[in-house]
Amino acid sequence: MVEINLEFSGGLELLFGDVKQHKVQVPAKDGAIQVLISDLLVWIRGNLLKERPEMFLKGDSVRPGILVLINDCDWELCGRLASPVEDGDTVVFISTLHGG
């Protein structure tokens, strides 16, 4: 079980009851030691996502246009879906904006 801070912004919060910040406890998969971002996505879908899952997820990853940040760092730099999350980590899901 890891306790992490989740944030949704850029409009994604609308899929989560219009709440941007969530403190959550996420269990590791059976037999696993670590919680990976891929596990987190499954957990979010089952426990936090309130509506229109297709606006958040696509396949086993996030929908195009969503930037994932682990402790203020692009998840591309930390292993994407295989990146482990640890106690106290902050994971941000941000939908890119296009307005001007």
């Binding site: 195009p64 246009g65 296009h98």
Partner: peptide, 11 residues
């Protein structure tokens, strides 16, 4: 950053 364009972009 965004190799695949987003869907349902809001204006």
């Amino acid at each position: 950053m965004f190799p695949v364009p987003p869907v349902g972009a809001r204006r």
